[in-house]
């Protein structure tokens, strides 16, 4: 059982989440029965490899009724149809987060990269430049330590660290709990720094408006080809550490060409989180996204007000 809140989050620790006994769940997700599971020591002890796969390469068993070899054998066996996506639960939590963001005019971005590409440095710089213009908060994902959240809080912006333990990505459920802790005001910018990993964060929707992939010029130009899922899932690529270009053999045009081969619609910006080069373009992108989120919330509010006025008018006529 999960030691944080018993909700099946494995080893995840969310700052502040363990110091209250009964925590309210007013964030958008629901906890169903059977949500908790036990895997207390599962990964730490060894045991023989017992899982047998029976592969049916290219063998499709669509249609109804018991399929040949899968018919119940023993008398008390029965078949239960499931037909559910393995990541379906994450997607449901992500939808909940997305709805929450829409209702509150929150523009959420999910920053993904390899470790050390400069996500935290970029966040600190961005917050420094934005904090007089916008409400900004951060969810920090790392396997261990709250160092990055501490770096963010030093700017004065609220931040919550989520430690994923052995997990190498944030999921939508963890983010839902972090939102509950952050209690963001309406019309905020939420930046989520994912765990440094270019692989599985691509598959885990957090409910964000956009994934932003950060690639630093100290990495290879061909990273987009090596980790295509991530570059395909992202809408914007920030090519970071361009202050180092004079000292490297990094081919910027080649890198962008590879990235667009994977994702023709990918936007690209060249920045340096330390020198500040290119930051205006990135900040303009963020504030434009935030403006859209705020306008959409406002429009919803206005629609609701209009509908209430109409109902009241009708009541007045009838009454």
């Amino acid at each position: 059982m999960c030691t944080v809140c018993g909700c099946g989050q494995g080893e995840t620790r969310i700052e502040g989440h363990d110091d209250e006994n009964a925590h309210g769940h007013d964030h958008p997700h629901t906890h169903e029965p059977g949500h908790a599971h036990s895997h207390a020591d599962g990964a730490t002890h060894s045991h023989p490899h017992a899982t047998h796969f029976h592969q049916h390469q290219g063998d499709l068993h669509y249609g109804l009724g018991p399929a040949h070899a899968h018919a119940p054998g023993l008398s008390q066996e029965r078949m239960v149809r499931i037909e559910q996506d393995i990541l379906g639960k994450n997607n449901a939590y992500a939808d909940g987060n997305r709805k929450h963001f829409a209702e509150h005019g929150i523009f959420a971005v999910n920053l993904v990269s390899s470790p050390g590409s400069g996500k935290t440095t970029l966040l600190v710089k961005s917050i420094d430049l934005l904090k007089d213009k916008a409400k900004v908060a951060v969810v920090e994902g790392d396997q261990q330590t709250s160092n990055d959240a501490d770096r963010i809080r030093a700017t004065g912006a609220p931040a919550i660290q989520v430690n994923t333990g052995k997990g190498c990505h944030l999921d939508a459920h963890m983010v839902g709990h972090a939102l509950e802790r952050l209690a963001l005001p309406d019309d905020s910018l939420l930046m989520i720094e994912n765990v440094g990993n270019l692989v599985c964060p691509a598959a885990f929707d957090l409910g964000e408006a956009h994934k932003v992939v950060i690639l630093s010029v100290t990495e290879g130009e061909d990273k987009p080809l090596k980790y295509p899922d991530m570059f395909n899932a992202a809408d914007l690529m920030l090519l970071n550490k361009i202050d180092l270009l004079p000292y490297l053999n990094f081919d910027v045009a080649q890198c962008i060409e590879y990235a667009r081969r994977i994702n023709p619609k990918l936007e690209v910006m060249q920045v340096s989180a330390t020198s500040g080069a290119g930051m205006e373009e990135w900040l303009a992108w963020l504030t434009a996204g935030l403006d859209v989120a705020i306008a959409a919330r406002q429009q919803n509010v206005n629609l609701l007000k209009k509908r209430i006025a109409e109902l009241e008018a009708r009541l007045a006529v009838n009454g």
């Binding site: 099946g8 494995g10 169903e32 029965p33 059977g34 949500h35 599971h37 895997h39 499931i82 559910q84 393995i86 990541l87 379906g88 639960k89 994450n90 052995k166 997990g167 190498c168 990505h169 999921d171 692989v199 599985c200 598959a203 885990f204």
Partner: peptide, 15 residues
């Protein structure tokens, strides 16, 4: 990420 997939499968089964 196979570990998350395995946990997803377990969750579906337990639900």
């Amino acid at each position: 990420h196979e570990m998350s997939l395995a946990e997803g499968i377990l969750q579906i089964v337990e639900d």
